[in-house]
Design a protein around this nucleic acid. Structure first.
Lengths: 204, 204, 204, 204
DNA sequence: GATGAATGAGCGTTCATTCAT
DNA sequence: CATGAATGAACGCTCATTCAT
């Protein structure tokens, strides 16, 4: 009954990977609530009982799927040194938009699970805190350099702007308010509001 | 017998109200998913079957609870004529904050339900569309008066700023990131970012 | 709680009649199993609770409906004196066919109820026994007159021929095997088989 | 998990068979309407949920029981070549009587279900149509050979005589009008009426 | 380890009947 | 007597998890 343990054999690893890939697809298709363990097992072409050889519960496999997602969402982050702040914001945002689009469906499910599962709520909170802290440090730096008004609370500003971007993308791509023709306008507006709110000089 | 009907007698109306009040409390306490019809009935001190005299399902009573919430959230809106734009934004935001606080718990549940129930997704969408449209009209007016940069897309700006306020409040009050000492800083920051993003002159 | 009693006031009688008429229509429409007391009450434009003022149960009102049906089915029977036996059989059958058609829908429901309700099973049995006995007496008479072979068992013959007519009509009109163009052929065949089976001389 | 599937293992097949056998017994005992899935599971000494591993509903298992019944009722049919028509009718009837007796109880339940379930109505209709068609062809053949009056409508005759036999047996064995001493008289009478109605020469 | 059957608590919903007004 | 709300036992079905092979 050592389910959840990392399997040791080559074959076991393959089965585990099949389950994770299947889980992501099924979760994207049906949401967390409407996904059954049987769906995942069948989709992975694995016996029902074998699921529990690798994961102790539906929550556990979802946690793994979400972990990989967060890795993907943050892996592509790389600094763009020696740029104007406005330009760096635009670049960072664009990367985030792309990541969001790539993972929009599963992001939606994570959002769903976070509304009723404490463990997930906490996971989300941590990821957000990390991102907000990094962003707040950048704002403080810019305030030190006289680029951003010192009257702004760096942490709250970072929070609010992250919320703006996150939730706008969520509503647009996930909650079906998307209008693909207008996507460009939305993204441009998010960039502009970010930059204006901070009072940064628009990059030339 | 046919649930969903408006009750015809005083007594029936009372029972229905008891159920709605109980439902709100139970939903706030346990969330939508973990709420059972039996919880609501018991909390209302009403027989199990009586629930179905008034509502055909858990979804139905939740819709009623949410309807009343939206009514409350919008009812308190009143115009503040002859003010500076920045001042009006601050006032409107404060009203919204108060409404949010008053209804934070149930707002959270609505957010939850909207992640898996199409009917609710649609309800939320409509309410948001109304609010965004009003806000976009105000921005256009201010652009006409030369107070806001004409380069900003009014609709997308309205969307993004609404998302910022909504989601910030949601994360703060609902997802447990609240730190009551800092609430004032958050709200001030939201006001400030709103005003700065639009490029409005800060009211004196 | 004296429900089931015959009401005394004019108004009470009217309400009771309304319920019976409504019950027949609803039973015909939905069958016994799928009929709810609420359907009957609503169809009669009578309060739910009032039903129980007049009938102690769904079974009770059905019994009343069925009683009236049997009255109608037998009321039209009148002897046709001084005829040939074959002619009398044809006449009697025709009357029965007409009655069946007039009441086919409710006959179907009675058949349904008789499959699971002992009280109804017994009611049907009695009605059938009466009809079979009368028919058997006629056969005996004809045997006495040398018109029918004395080797035939009068009671069993009466039973079997009644079963033939009853069930043929049931399958034809009720179980939806009806083909209206061919109805005449079916009825003629039933007459002919009756007469031939008894060995009666075909009426000229 | 998905009920209705054919089980894949020996053990699964055994459980499924246990359920079917138990279902037949419980249906015979209590009728379709008063049978609960829990009764069947308990009678089969199987967990409640296991029922749904094999059948999606009470209707589904009943369909299977009925299918097997019809197979039994028709399997024993074998031709009796080179006999007099009257003799063949007697033989065929006797076989049918025996089958009916063997399955009388469950036949009753099928009759019951056919009164309110469209799927079953249709199943019964098909079986009857097959039997009637075969019988009608025999009548036509005898008409060609001059043994049966050409004036008789073969199809309607086949229908009516089948209805006579079927319903007589039903009333006798199922609806509790049975009087075991007289059973022989009933069967003899059914044979005789069949033969006389067709005008066949009684076999010596 | 893989397989798929077995388990049963749990929940939503129904509806005949009773009761308060 | 009329009215319609109140009651709650009963049942069908689900599905995460455990177990036997």
């Amino acid at each position: 009954m050592d389910s959840g343990d990392t399997p040791l054999t080559e074959r076991g690893i393959r089965t585990r990977e099949k389950l994770i890939a299947a889980a992501r697809e099924v979760f994207e298709e049906r949401g967390f609530i409407d996904t059954r363990v049987s769906h995942i097992a069948r989709h992975a072409a694995v016996a029902y009982g074998s699921f529990y050889t690798y994961f102790p519960s539906k929550e556990a496999i979802f946690l793994e799927v979400a972990d990989r997602l967060f890795a993907d969402m943050t892996a592509h982050r790389f600094p763009s040194p020696g740029r104007e702040p406005a330009d760096r914001i635009r670049r960072a945002n664009r990367e985030y938009y792309e990541g969001y689009l790539r993972n929009a469906k599963i992001m939606a499910i994570i959002e769903q699970v976070a509304t009723f599962n404490e463990e997930f709520k906490e996971l989300r909170r941590k990821h957000r805190a990390t991102a907000v802290a990094r962003s707040a440090r950048a704002i403080e730096r810019w305030q030190g350099e006289g680029l951003v008004d010192a009257a702004l609370d760096p942490e709250m500003t970072a929070r609010a702007l992250a919320a703006m971007v996150d939730h706008s993308l969520y509503l647009w791509f996930v909650q079906g308010e998307e209008d693909s023709d207008a996507t460009g306008r939305l993204l441009d507006t998010l960039d502009a509001l970010n930059i204006r709110a901070l009072g940064l000089p628009p990059a030339p």
